[in-house]
Design a protein around this nucleic acid. Structure first.
Lengths: 202, 202
DNA sequence: GTCTATATAGGGATAGAC
DNA sequence: GTCTATCCCTATATAGAC
């Protein structure tokens, strides 16, 4: 009936994102995705051949988002502190708008570690070597303490991403509602670079 | 045949831990747990009535581990830096011996956020108020900068836990094998307190 | 392209012999 | 307590009408 072209496909993808993010691959039900999209279950198989196919479309989009922005901030102009601030700022913005992505990606990768290798090598250019060299240079120039760059990078990434992964637990323990959580994450944009730069500056 | 008492039950629990941690609740198969335990599938239902029951036994043990040690370090004697070091040290040790636990607990809580409330209130005494007051005191005494205690706590916890959650991705990107990973995590015991204390000390 | 009806398999759970 | 055989529901996937 509807000739609206990619409309159905788009709605299926949106619905699939919601359900897969919420339930994971094995917990997700094709019926729930169909309901969420407001269409029939058979349509899912018409547009995407199988559950696995549909999942992979959702998964790769999520992978692209988590890995896409990591390097770009650090290749911008400015000193190390500026780059760090720029990264944390844009990454937390990304996570505020798509808070489910890190937990989703990490869970699925943990359960299929081989699956990631193909994708990461092909599509996403995640080359930590440039970042490591950047930090090593700062150390050589006496701007930063002599700390293993891996440990510095790890601390930055952890501080930005983990609160979103642990959100349900943290919200409960600290009694934080949705609005306050976003406010706190926005504050973290300033606080993470502040703590870490003071922690590693020479 | 075997009258070895709790032997079978113990083996089932060990097998269930492995499989649930690896696959999550919905991904786990009773058959795989039985194989892993080296017994028959029917025995699982004899000892634990259902998959859900078995899962909950595994889940609650994991919850106890992640939340058990959080508060004890911070209520030890010594100044804030000592307490922080003691916490990071014992927590990373815990995660080195049970590296799968954080990802497991977080995933299951994300998929059943209501489930946690009963457990956390009853069994695990996680009261962040004491920790917040401890930090506020240090701020008042001019030992620490005036930073929201939540943000400090968040940075500590994130830095310690996240590397274990993101391990499969990180190992791949940074080309880290099992042995090196443990070495790096052991180094983190010194580096996290160092970076954070320098970052927040007045 | 969209729907209803149905085939098929997989996996949790139980019955019942030993 | 332990095993084999089997029940039965659920969920993916397809057939086929419109």
């Amino acid at each position: 009936m509807k000739q609206k072209d990619h409309e159905a496909e788009y709605r299926i993808m949106e619905a699939a994102k919601i359900v897969f993010h919420k339930r994971g691959y094995f917990g997700a039900r094709m019926q729930e995705i169909a309901d969420e999209a407001g269409i029939n279950k058979a349509m899912l198989h018409y547009y995407f051949r199988s559950k696995k196919n549909l999942f992979e479309a959702v998964f790769q989009e999520a992978l692209g988002k988590v890995f896409g922005k990591i390097m770009s901030s650090f290749s911008k102009a400015g000193n190390f502190e500026d780059k760090l601030s720029s990264f944390v700022d844009s990454y937390i913005d990304l996570l505020i708008s798509d808070p489910y992505i890190p937990a989703f990606v990490i869970h699925e990768i943990n359960h299929n570690p081989e699956g990631i290798k193909n994708f990461l090598n092909e599509k996403t250019q995640v080359n930590p070597q440039l970042l490591i060299e950047l930090i090593n240079n700062e150390i050589k120039n006496n701007n930063l303490k002599d700390i293993d760059p891996f440990q510095i990078i790890m601390t930055i990434i952890s501080s930005a991403i983990f609160p979103f992964i642990g959100k349900p637990i943290l919200s409960h323990i600290f009694n934080i509602d949705e609005e306050l959580f976003i406010e706190l994450m926005n504050e973290r944009k300033k606080i993470i670079p502040e703590i870490i730069m003071n922690g590693i500056r020479k």
